[in-house]
């Protein structure tokens, strides 16, 4: 990895997120590798749990505040908090401050941590100043823009830049890459017919590119698209962008 910054003494707290922790642990290790290669001292606070999105988006504001307080306890001491998910990062960065608008002194602590929290790929490009990864892999991928990262954190070019720097990797853009895949947290099980149809359209667009894998920045969307591809018997793989950037996708038999 080519880091513009040399070894830094900045400390990062990695927030794994529930879905990475439970469903795709390798994404967490990929994030560790990418951040350490960039010269950071990375730790994983042991008592981290969830950012509270399921409760927040279900209208349960009070529980969400308790998740946010837990988050502060775990991450207050780090220079940066990095999250391998646009939606969980946006939860902290964009939505936590709204939950404590009228509550000093909590408001100050929340705003401070929100400011230091970043989604993984945009952290690598925008904060660490990295524009390429030392990694070679002859494969083709198509990138799905996960909604929260795209619209709340303006993540669009960053993953494409880094993916484009992988030697031999071809990026085949799909049509409607910025249209929602239908995951939407609890939405996918509350409205299974609608969500199922949305991801059917998405998996069709993925298949049309002929790419060997679909890559995205959120494990929720990843599982959704991967599951729809599998259901239609499509062998196209699905990876988190960190897995590809760290070269972990090469471990898989194709």
């Amino acid at each position: 990895m080519t880091a513009q910054t040399s070894t830094t003494d900045k400390r990062i707290g990695l927030f794994a997120t529930c879905l990475v922790n439970t469903m795709r642990p390798r994404v967490g290790f990929a994030a560790l590798k990418l951040l350490e290669d960039a010269g950071y001292d990375v730790a994983v606070p042991a008592d981290q749990t969830c950012c509270g999105q399921p409760n927040y988006n279900s209208g349960d504001r009070e529980s969400t505040r308790s998740f946010a307080r837990g988050f502060i306890r775990q991450f207050a001491d780090y220079d940066y908090v990095v999250v391998p998910s646009g939606s969980c990062a946006a939860m902290v960065k964009v939505h936590y401050p709204k939950l404590f608008e009228d509550d000093e002194p909590e408001k100050t602590a929340i705003n401070a941590i929100a400011e230091r929290t970043y989604e993984l790929v945009s952290f690598l490009t925008d904060v660490a100043g990295i524009d390429r990864v030392e990694n070679a892999h002859a494969t083709s991928v198509t990138y799905h823009d996960a909604c929260s990262g795209l619209r709340e954190l303006k993540i669009k070019q960053q993953p494409r830049t880094l993916l484009g720097s992988v030697d031999g990797l071809e990026l085949k853009e799909m049509e409607d890459s910025d249209v929602c895949c239908g995951f939407g947290g609890l939405f996918c099980v509350k409205y299974p017919d609608v969500s199922g149809e949305m991801v059917r359209k998405k998996s069709e667009e993925v298949a049309k590119t002929g790419a060997e894998a679909v890559v995205t920045g959120d494990v929720g969307c990843l599982l959704n698209i991967e599951g729809a591809l599998a259901r239609r018997g499509d062998p196209t793989r699905a990876y988190h962008v960190a897995e590809v950037l760290a070269g972990f996708d090469k471990e898989d038999a194709s």
Binding site: T22, P25, G28, F29, P192, D193, R200, G227, A228, A230
Partner: peptide, 20 residues
Amino acid sequence: IGRGWTQSRDLAAPAEPTFL
């Protein structure tokens, strides 16, 4: 509640124990 998921897609099982 998981039925809503599997009615139209599969779920890739985790390949290993949790990250934490």
